[in-house]
């Protein structure tokens, strides 16, 4: 049951992940892959503070993660992998860490240059380019914020007009 969800969400650990997906899937550990965060203790404390006792959080750089993903995948504990942006996920994919893992786009919010595609998903041109690179790396990608929502596949997503 190893990797339950591999999610891009710029809020990282938050209610939708912990309550929404966590209680749905049986979550034990959240792995946040982010080079900056892996170095910053006070930020890690903040993210950990939101977790219930039963759920652990790990912070890893891309470099470490590439080596450790296979271990998490064969572990008995249910893990959710989180990155802040599509680029980090793409780097993992290109290093071969995401074989047979579907990437979930769970939340990218408004920022300069980003346009709204879904209520929870705002994409910039750069984000779109990264998504296409993921597709070329043969990674399955879909968008879905909560388990009860409709899952939008990548091809459909890229054809949606920004509003």
């Amino acid at each position: 049951m190893p990797i339950l969800l591999c999610r891009v969400d710029d809020r990282l650990i938050h209610g939708q992940v912990v309550v929404g997906w966590g209680s749905h899937l049986g979550l034990d550990i959240i792995v946040v892959i982010d080079d900056e965060l892996a170095e910053s203790e006070w930020e890690q404390d903040l993210y950990r503070a939101g977790l219930p006792d039963a759920v652990e959080a790990l912070f890893a750089s891309v470099e470490t993660a590439v080596e450790l993903v296979p271990a998490w995948a064969s572990n008995a504990a249910g893990a959710i992998i989180l990155t802040r942006d599509i680029g980090t996920m793409r780097r993992l994919a290109e290093r071969g860490a995401l074989a047979d893992i579907e990437v979930n786009l769970g939340g990218l919010h408004s920022a300069l240059g980003r346009e709204r595609v879904l209520p929870y998903l705002f994409l910039s041109d750069e984000d779109r380019a990264e998504l296409k690179r993921l597709r070329r790396a043969d990674v399955r990608v879909s968008a879905q914020d909560v388990p009860s929502a409709r899952r939008v596949k990548l091809d459909e997503l890229l054809e949606m007009k920004a509003s």
């Binding site: 809020r11 650990i13 938050h14 912990v18 309550v19 903040l46 993210y47 950990r48 939101g50």
Partner: peptide, 13 residues
């Protein structure tokens, strides 16, 4: 950016 997460999660639960 970081405080959004625990405040949401703690409060929601």
């Amino acid at each position: 950016r970081a405080i959004v997460s625990p405040l949401g999660s703690l409060g929601d639960r």
